[in-house]
Design a protein around this nucleic acid. Structure first.
Length: 645
RNA sequence: GCCAAGAUAGCUCAGUUGGCAGAGCAACUGAUUCGUAAUCAGUAGGUCGUGAGUUCAAUUCUCAUUCUUGGCUCCA
């Protein structure tokens, strides 16, 4: 038969293997890097026969995305083999490839320890050394069921029952066999670079009602160099961890006496928040929002009326005062409803946009708490937009533009998701339908791409979530836009229309940063602690060379302060190198050095944290340089801001 | 909430097979007056997360609890 391999026409014998075909069509060097073959969309083992219908066979190389998936999947099998050898009573379940690596879930009578991982890794290496063949065989469902039942692998039986296929492929290398779709590398010797990373609990099939299994995570790459690079990246990411930097830069802390998931903001962290919040207030006023504020606790009946008591109770804190039940707010909407209702609203008054930097408390499960990213008490930059149905789409677009401006300001990459009606929810199907299409239409009308997240909406309405990625590749939800027809109904919100009749407005819940806590956490990681000049708690630090410049340093500090620059003076009796190092470690944007020369000329010598050195300039020029740098991001985006203005 | 690991000085960490608790940095004092990532010397600093139990003796062993971490489930 005639077949095309990587652009070359070659002649193949009937029943030839993919490996033979690729060997023929590729150079020796290239062939060494091949993991599996690909015919159209079908991935094929190298040991598989070339399908008779196949006209073009492509190689999948080890360093390609698809190749890495195969390597990681095969490494998961390799690990399962080692585990079964060392712990024969462990039962295997599933072991897929994931981003940067793989995992395998086992059911075993005792937890695996770090020492176990070392032993498993050693066993894996010995299997690689033995260079065992991966062999694939096909069985009927019944055969497969019996096959795994004989080995006491009941989880595999459960999978076979659930998948309901007629035929199953089974991969075997050495003494280890696993139910698997494949494909796999041809021999264990092709797995050259892997490392086991951690062990963690995971529910069987991801359901918390099921048994907790033990999941071993590992990473695998095409060669040791790529593995080393990945481990180095992990290490670098660790250095950016906002929890580590939060301590180092003295921004915030937690304390067990306060309770889990509660943050204390230190002077510098508090200042960062204050700058962000101040900027947000101005930005909201500019965009036609009103600033409002509701109380922290509200009567329980109100939460019952809104549906929160029924749908969100397990996340709420309650208290009782004078035999009256109160709920601590997990959301800010209720007071905003009542603010709207304080007077008769006319169609001319709409939209009403109520903005509140509202502190909310949510009882999150203890295991999910994570630094600033997941806490139990946080501040939302929350707003409720109450508008006429005909204004809804424009309001959604307006909010989306706001979000985009913000993402540009920090150069964040983001994606949008629309979440639809969940099981536990309130409202009619018609309203949900209307609300969901309003969100979709808004994004469609401005050509913004989005994915659909079925059943993931809030209990009162569908939502657009804006998801951004942090330095560790984790996704964080910050902004969200939620459509709500229910609360206006429950609170009987009305406006008087042009026709003199009463009409029902619709409402949007939305946040831009999301939680201030989380957003600051994301910023810290994004900038590795080196916050942009406009956000840096300390923008400049003056440092004298010897005691004789103390007086001028004080004068310079007062001058900078009068210009609205956040400045400190380090006049300690320390060597200049020491002061510079300290400022550098604290990631202060500008160091202003003052020696005898500077005093004489009435100047400072500027050194920036990223190595730029504008040299000796007058106090006036230095101040201007810093103020300009603080304005830089606003010249790029559609925003304007100045902390002093 | 579930599975697992951890908590020792302000920070980073060592240590005790159960017998007076250690380092570096930071702090404080003194010397030094120095030009762009760590000057030298000295002093002080701990109920070994918290509460019980076992023991002649617990930071160490057991149990409970709080908090943190890695996952699972769930979310801004």
């Amino acid at each position: 038969m005639q077949i095309e391999v990587a652009g070359n026409q070659i002649e193949l014998a009937e029943g030839a293997l993919c490996a033979d075909a690729l060997k023929e069509g590729l150079s020796k060097k290239q062939f060494k890097k091949v993991v599996v073959a690909k015919c159209g969309e079908d991935m094929l083992d190298l040991t598989a026969a070339v399908p008779t219908a196949c006209t073009t066979l492509e190689p999948v190389f080890a360093d390609s995305e698809e190749g890495l998936v195969v390597i990681r999947h095969s490494t998961a099998h390799l690990m399962a083999e080692a585990v079964k050898k060392l712990f024969p009573t462990a039962k295997v379940t599933i072991g897929p490839s994931i981003k940067d690596g793989f995992y395998y879930d086992f059911d075993y009578e005792r937890p695996f320890t770090p020492e176990d991982l070392e032993a498993i890794e050693k066993e894996m290496l010995s299997s690689v050394g033995a260079n065992k063949d991966f062999a694939c065989q096909t069985m009927t469902a019944d055969e497969a069921r019996t096959y795994f039942a004989d080995m006491n692998e009941d989880y595999k039986g459960e999978l076979i029952d659930d998948l309901g296929e007629d035929e199953y492929s089974i991969y075997t290398h050495g003494d280890f066999s696993d139910l698997c779709r494949g494909p796999h590398v041809a021999r264990t010797g092709m797995l050259k670079a892997f490392k086991l990373l951690s062990v963690a609990g995971a529910y069987w099939r991801g359901d918390e009602k099921n048994k907790m299994l033990q999941r071993i995570y590992g990473t695998a790459w095409q060669d040791p160099k790529a593995l080393k690079k990945h481990l180095f990246r992990l290490d670098e990411a660790k250095k950016r961890d906002h929890r580590k930097l939060g301590t180092q830069l003295d921004l915030f802390s937690t304390h067990e006496d306060i309770g889990g998931g509660m943050i204390m903001w230190h002077p510098k962290g508090g200042l960062v928040r204050a700058i962000l919040e101040d900027w947000e207030r101005k930005e909201h006023l500019k965009r036609g929002y009103d600033i409002v504020q509701g109380p922290l606790i509200l009567k329980q009946e109100l939460w019952e009326k809104s549906g929160h008591y029924e749908n969100y109770k397990e996340n709420m804190y309650f208290t009782e005062i004078d035999d009256q039940g109160y709920g601590i707010k997990p959301m800010n909407c209720l007071a905003h409803m009542l603010i709207y209702k304080r007077k008769t609203q006319s169609y001319r008054d709409l939209p009403q946009r109520y903005f509140e930097l509202g502190v909310v408390h949510r009882h999150e499960k203890s295991g999910v708490l994570h630094g600033l990213m997941r806490v139990r008490s946080f501040t939302q930059d929350d707003a409720h937009l109450i508008c006429r149905p005909d204004q809804l789409q424009d309001e959604i677009i307006g909010v989306f533009h706001f979000v985009k401006d913000l993402m540009d300001l920090f150069s964040f990459e983001f994606r949008a998701e629309i979440s639809t009606r969940p099981e536990k929810s309130v409202g009619t199907d018609a309203d949900w339908e209307l609300a969901t299409s309003a969100l979709e239409n808004a994004l469609d009308s401005i050509d913004e791409e989005y994915t659909i997240n079925e059943g993931d909406g809030a209990f009162y309405g569908p939502k657009i979530d804006i998801i951004l990625e942090d330095s560790l590749g984790r996704s964080w939800q910050c902004a969200t836009i939620q459509c709500d027809f229910t609360l206006p109904e429950r609170f009987d919100l009305v406006y008087v229309g042009e026709d003199g009749a009463r009409h029902r407005p619709v409402m949007l819940h939305r946040v831009i940063l999301g939680s201030i806590e989380r957003f600051v956490g994301v910023l810290i990681e994004h900038f590795a602690g080196a916050l942009p000049v406009w956000l840096a708690p300390v923008q400049a630090r003056l440092m004298n060379v010897t005691d004789s410049q103390i007086e001028f340093s004080e004068k310079a500090k007062q001058f900078m302060l009068s210009k609205g620059i956040r400045v400190e003076a380090d006049i300690r009796n320390e060597k200049l190198g020491y002061k510079v190092r300290e400022a550098q470690v604290e990631k202060i944007p500008y160091m202003l050095v003052i020696g005898d020369k500077e005093v004489e000329a009435g100047c400072v010598n500027i050194r920036s944290r990223d190595g730029e050195d504008p040299g000796m300039v007058t106090l006036e020029e230095a101040a201007q340089l810093i103020l300009d740098a603080a304005q830089e991001p606003f010249k790029l985006g559609g925003m304007s801001y100045s902390f002093s203005g």
